[in-house]
Every structure is written in C-alpha cells, then in structure tokens.
Nucleic acid binder design. Structure first.
Lengths: 235, 235
DNA sequence: CGTGGAAGGAATTTCGACAAAACCTCCGGT
DNA sequence: ACCGGAGGTTTTGTCGAAATTCCTTCCACG
C-alpha cells in the first residue's frame, strides 16, 4: 500500500486545491445557492480542513467570480440575478464570436482537423443517458465542452480562451440553478453541426451568428426559469 | 486623533488587501522581474505581514495571472515572453474590438456623452510632465485609462469589461518591463481623437480598425524592446 | 415614543509554531 | 567517471489560538 493515494487525491496535491475543487463543484451544481453566507467555521467543520486552506480556496473562488468577498464580513456565494445573467450571456457571445472570427480567419490545418474530430466525437455520444426522459450524460458534457473549445482554439489568443472557459463555468451554474436541463423543442445536435460546418467553410458571419443564437437561446430560456425561481432558494 | 488612518489604509481594510496592492504594483512596475521566486519568508520580512495575509495576496495575484503558483513549490512572478505578449495583444484587440462594436451598436446617449467628456479631458492634460524629454504624467495615465474605459462602457457586458481591465494591467506590465515609455514617431493624441470620432460616428469598422492598430503598434514596439532585454533581468 | 450610543456576542482576520514536502549535497556503488 | 540513493536543509502548507472588527441588542436620553 505504498501508493494509497486515490486518483482524486493525486490531482489535488494540497488540501487547499482539494477543498477549492469541492466548493467550486458545489457552487456550480447549485447545491450552495446564490447569496448563501459561507461561514468559515461551518465550512471547516463540513469539509474537514483548517481555516487556512479554506480561506485560500474561498479567495480563489472570489477571484474566479463564483464567490464574492465582503471585507471583514467573510464570503458568500455569488449572486445570480437575471440582470447579471444577461451581461454574462452578452459577454460570452461577444468574446466567443470574436475568438471564432479570429479562428476562422487564421486557424491552421491542425485547428480544422481538431474541430472536425471534436464535432464527430460529440455526435457519437448520446445527449441523455435515458432515451425517455433527460438524464445528464457526463461524457456528452465533456465532448460538448471539448467541441466548443476546439471551435475557438485556433484564434491564437490564450488569455481570451481562458476567459471564455470562465464564462462557460458561470453559465453552467445558471443552467444548474434553473435545473431545467432538457431544452424543449431544440435540436442541439443540428445547431452544433451547423456551427462547425460554417466555421470549416470559413463563413465568419454565418458561424458567429449561429454561435450567438446558440447561446442567446439558452440564456433566454434559463433567464425565464430563473425568474420564476427567484427567491425560492433563500437560505 | 480618533481617525488616525491614512487614506491609503482606509482603502485597504485588511492587511491582505494592502499587501496584495503593494505586490501588484511592484509586479506591474517591473520592480519584481518575471520568473522571480516569491519566497514567503522573504516577503513576510519585506512587507511586514504574517504568512496568512501574504499567502492570500499571492493566491489572488495568481488568480489574476500576475503570478503563477507551483504546487508545493510556492509562487513566482508570471513569465513575460514575447510569445505570451503576442497572445495578450491579440486577446486585447479581439476583446476590446468586440466590446467597442457592441457599444457602437447599442450604446445610449449616456455612453456618447461620457465618451465625449473623457476624450475632452484626455486632451486637456499633457502627456509628459517635461516638454523636453518624456516624464510619465500620472494624471494623463488616469485620463487615458478613463478614456479607454469610456469607449467600451456602453457594451452592456460587465464581465467583458472586467476582463479588458485585467488585460490592460498585464499590458501595462510589459510596457514597464520594456521601460520605453516614449513611443517614438507617433501622435497618440491624434489616434485617440480618431478613435473617439469614429465611435461617435457609429462607424464600427473604422473604430475597431483604429483601436486594433492602436494596440498592435504599441505591442510590436514593446515586443522588440523586450526581445532585446530578454534575460537581462534575471534574478 | 423614537433616537443615539454603548456593551455584549459572533465572526473574520491575523499571528506564530508545527508538520510535510521538495531541493540540495554528499556518499557509495557500478 | 557517472548514476542512484540517503540525509540534512530549506521552503511550503497546515493548524489552533489571539486580536480586531462588525453586527445585534439593550438602555438611557431627548
């Protein structure tokens, strides 16, 4: 038993990173509702780590925008108002469309091939684990993320890509909060195929237009769901 | 003397934020060269704060991209290679042009008026404190920052604006590292006026084109300066 | 009856010491 | 001479308690 470490522990070299990951997942999944006070004492008890790693994890989350710090008043989970969602979606559309346009203009053959591959892999995986009702398929989520990353990867602007990832995480949180995973009346697969097709055709106008629609449609849907739920998740 | 706090201390409610600000300024000004090891013991001694606030400041800097953390190996100042500068400039051009385009399309009268005002105020301040040789004028720097912020403020995407601010800070660091503040053979004031004019004319193509040139020219200049200095700032 | 202020309680922030990990050096073996 | 490993040193990461700050409540006063 010389290697008693699990794979999870192997990826989290320090307690602070481990607790950061767990907190992050809990916020992204909506288990910690927006605005919830994050009391250090309770967290220490619940996550089984000292105040130092916990504080560091919270600080990191605050920098990522998933939590907010109130000086001398501790931390709380970031708010999730419909108005903020609008700004988020708008930022996402603007940033990703800019990156996509750049990728279309300057992306090399390796970008093309990676995108083709990612689109193919996404198509090979079922969206839902259950054909009858919607059950989130982790592998589809991964392929979906990979597809959108591959779409922008050719833009040659790593900081912008990192920013897009962060926005994706935040959008993910809203999606979980609205916990309405089954987008009604949409053929998501067809939308992805159309985006990839336009990008590979080097049609920037069409590609960015489709991408913007892709996000705005989801955003509008989540926004209304969230509006109905507003206040229902109070602590 | 019931209010013994200075204005500086008033804005830094906790030791961690104060130390964060100081470290940030030292990195941005280039006083801490890229790649420099940030040993906790030394920092505690130099900045006069305990390990906890210092660690928290470093964690925040790492999240901002100004420092990088090596698990179990502490922190170091973020690297500054010419290749990374290229990605940074590219990200900046893409993000700001997207925001500018959105502001031009949707910016209301408040945006127009604020931009007009910012452009005017920038013109009223001298670029250099000394007419003969270049001496950085703090007020011009402030007005310059305000101008660029006002330019994008109408885009309605707060996260994108925050991202642009972060990129500006990083670019500032490169500028300080190349410590070549006097851009030779350029009429910066005219460039700003042209950008503002195009934006107010709602000419998105012209405005974004000018903005991109504005940054790329500076970036290219700093890149060559940095290339010459590469390795000269080793610890 | 409403308002201002002070004391009490709770939470955050900070400190200093402990434990664990990584780096460097040195030694022995091949 | 070179590679591999063990020991010591430095540095990081973690813990629990003390100090400071903020919020709440209660009482006195206008």
């Amino acid at each position: 038993m010389s290697q008693a470490r699990t794979a999870q522990e192997e990826r989290d070299p320090t307690l602070a990173t481990a607790v950061h990951r767990r907190l992050r997942e809990d916020i992204l999944a909506g288990r910690l509702p927006p605005g919830r006070k994050l009391k250090l004492r309770d967290l220490v008890e619940q996550y089984g780590a000292g105040p130092s790693p916990m504080r560091e994890a919270l600080s990191k989350l605050a920098a990522e925008g998933l939590a907010e710090r109130l000086e001398h008043r501790g931390f709380r989970v970031a708010e999730a108002a419909p108005g903020q969602l609008a700004g988020l979606i708008r930022s996402r559309v603007l940033a990703e469309c800019a990156a996509l346009r750049a990728a279309i203009a300057d992306g090399g053959p390796e970008w093309e091939e990676a995108l083709l591959l990612a689109a193919h892999r996404l198509n090979r995986v079922a969206r839902s684990l259950d054909p009858q009702r919607f059950v989130s398929n982790p592998e589809w989520e991964d392929r979906h993320r990979d597809f959108h990353q591959a779409l922008l990867a050719g833009c040659g602007a790593p900081p912008l890509l990192a920013f897009c990832d962060r926005l994706r995480d935040e959008a993910e949180r809203y999606r979980a909060l609205a916990n309405a995973m089954a987008y009604p009346g949409r053929d998501v697969a067809a939308e992805h195929a159309a985006i990839a097709c336009a990008a590979l055709d080097r049609d920037a106008a069409a590609a960015t237009g489709l991408l913007a629609e892709h996000y705005e449609r989801t955003g509008a849907f989540i926004g209304t769901s969230l509006g109905r739920l507003a206040g229902a998740v109070a602590p």
